[in-house]
């Protein structure tokens, strides 16, 4: 088995960051008003993801465990700013249409998530391929969402008019665009249906194989990102460093907090199953 191929397959299909892991929702919803915006965002994120995965894998023996999250954040932020300058200088149109969401790539959970879950533990080459796979998976996902929204909302694809639009003033018949799809509510709507469709496929496949029906992905992707990957470990670990005298209280409270969240999630899964 070619390992690197497996990594790319994993990123695009098995652990697609958008549809399966449900990570990086902010850009997924915000910039998908058109397919070309989706591609621009996806490729920028891919670039940052590959570079940060590479560097973090290189430095994984040097970065101490307890300060790894701040180190990741610095590395990611630096790459994001570099990508931002490059876009501004060489592809100003993309830079303009993505605007605020370029610097916000820093807090895209996909990047910190991959750094933590993969790059920090694996070799440089594999981490690069993991970044490529995840990046392509993300790019494909948001391009598809963008395309659907653009097509229904404006009758266009990649900025070109595909379906002739009705013009009542000129007395011309045609397609009346459902504008709401390119507005904010449309983003939620399209994503809801795509995930529901995917749940449906999963359930069907599971039924055919007589496997137990998997619980719907629900919000645990998000919660997991917030709890386990990005937030919690950073805090609890740094805390043990910084407030050593209060260690006992801290761990106690932390575990309490964690069980609270866990039970919440568990009950949710129960409700779903």
């Amino acid at each position: 088995m070619k390992n690197w191929l497996e990594r790319i397959y994993n990123g695009i299909i098995k652990e697609n960051p958008t549809f399966v892991l449900i990570l990086g929702m902010c850009p997924t919803l915000a910039v998908t008003t058109s397919a070309s915006n989706g591609i621009g965002m996806g490729l920028s994120t891919t670039a940052v993801l590959v570079l940060s995965n590479m560097l973090i894998a290189m430095l994984r023996k040097i970065i101490p465990n307890s300060v790894r999250i701040p180190a990741f954040i610095v590395i990611v932020a630096a790459f994001v700013t570099m990508v931002q300058f490059l876009l501004q200088g060489f592809v100003p149109s993309v830079y303009q249409s993505l605007g605020l969401y370029i610097p916000l790539i820093v807090v895209n959970c996909i990047i910190l998530g991959r750094a933590e879950a993969y790059a920090y533990k694996n070799t440089v080459m594999m981490s690069i391929f993991d970044g490529i796979g995840m990046g392509i998976g993300f790019t494909l996902a948001i391009t598809i969402i963008g395309l659907i929204r653009e097509l229904i909302g404006a009758g266009q694809a990649f900025g070109r008019q595909i379906i002739p639009v009705a013009d009542s003033a000129a007395g011309k018949g045609g397609y009346v665009p459902v504008t709401i799809f390119i507005l904010a509510p449309g983003a939620f709507l399209v994503l809801a249906f795509l995930i529901a469709f995917q749940n449906y496929l999963k359930r069907k496949a599971a039924k055919r194989a007589h496997r137990p029906i998997p619980a719907a992905t629900c919000a645990d992707g998000c919660a997991a990102c917030g709890n386990e990957i990005c937030g919690k470990p950073l805090i609890s670990e740094e805390k043990t460093e910084k407030t050593e005298n209060k260690k006992e209280v801290t761990t106690e409270e932390k575990s309490e907090a964690k069980t609270e969240v866990k039970t919440d999630e568990a009950s949710d899964k129960e409700a779903l199953a």
């Binding site: 300060v67 701040p70 590395i75």
Partner: peptide, 22 residues
């Protein structure tokens, strides 16, 4: 702790300088 602090400072400085260059 000091070692960690030094490492993270070095990373930050290198990142800052690299950014300045770009």
């Amino acid at each position: 702790m000091i070692k960690n602090a030094i490492i993270i400072t070095v990373i930050t400085i290198v990142a800052g300088v690299a950014l300045g260059l770009v």
